[in-house]
């Protein structure tokens, strides 16, 4: 009961301020959730498809949105497999054969570690402001609507397959809790849902991220942030090919 009241109060205050917030500010808030910060943490990725299901525990290091290193900790079979992302490029390291493979352009559409994310998703995510123009569809009114709904339409020549990307941003904390990817006919292709909003490493964020393809509603990929620390001091060579192999 008490929490309910608090929630309503929060909503009201957020709603009150919501009137003057611009799309740009909101979109920047999405980027800033991670940008500029160095971080390290562990996460668990669960992938379920029609045929199989698996779970991977990974450690991650990142600096802003341009540099990321992810290494698998468990299961033992895949331990040490790592992915390095620096700007638009991705390298995979396979410890079994001790090989580093740069993911070529022709493989960018391939699945990343068997999940419903593509390699392309990893590198493309950061460029919202460059490739899209965004506009409000709905604003929180302090009563029944507690989300900003923003439609982002790709710029005419932007290399983006989507017809439209629709974000639902919570009025409470300006964090997105749902992103729908639609094709040009307006049909939903996949949905990214965020949940378990908590404070982790001093920042408010969604702990759980779940990707569901629209044509296979029984399948999903879930990424759960187990722990996360921000503004950590990372060695200068963290995001190099040498570090990828360690």
């Amino acid at each position: 009961m008490r929490t309910g009241v608090v929630a309503v109060l929060l909503l009201c205050t957020a709603g009150a301020r919501a009137q003057d917030v611009t799309v740009e500010e909101l979109m920047r808030a999405q980027d800033d959730a991670l940008r500029g910060a160095s971080s390290t943490g562990t996460m668990t990725m669960r992938v379920k498809t029609a045929r199989w299901e698996r779970s991977l525990t990974m450690q991650s290091w990142s600096e802003g949105t341009e540099k990321t290193l992810v290494r698998i900790l468990a299961p033992a079979k895949e331990k040490g497999t790592a992915t390095l992302k620096v700007e638009g490029n991705i390298w995979n390291y396979l410890p079994k054969v001790d090989r580093t493979i740069k993911v070529p352009g022709s493989m960018m559409g391939g699945s990343w570690m068997g999940s419903h994310f593509t390699n392309d998703d990893l590198v493309r995510e950061a460029r919202y402001s460059e490739d899209f123009t965004c506009a409000f569809v709905e604003k929180p009114d302090g009563k029944t609507r507690d989300h900003w709904v923003i439609d982002c339409t790709p710029r005419p020549n932007a290399p983006v397959v989507w017809g439209r990307v629709r974000l639902a941003i919570r009025a409470v904390d300006k964090l997105a809790d749902r992103i729908d990817y639609l094709d040009e006919k307006g049909a939903r292709v996949r949905t990214l849902v965020f949940s378990e909003f908590t404070t982790l490493g001093g920042r408010k964020l969604a702990r759980m991220m779940r990707m569901v393809p629209a044509d296979k509603p029984d399948e999903f990929t879930e990424v759960h942030q187990d722990d996360l620390a921000f503004d950590v001091k990372l060695p200068a060579d963290t995001f190099t090919l040498q570090a990828l192999k360690k």
Partner: peptide
């Protein structure tokens, strides 16, 4: 009329895309 994004590796080995 459908959109297709094409992705290639350019001269410097960077991954680039066009629409």
């Amino acid at each position: 009329g459908s959109k297709v994004v094409y992705t290639v590796t350019d001269e410097r080995g960077e991954i680039v895309s066009g629409l």
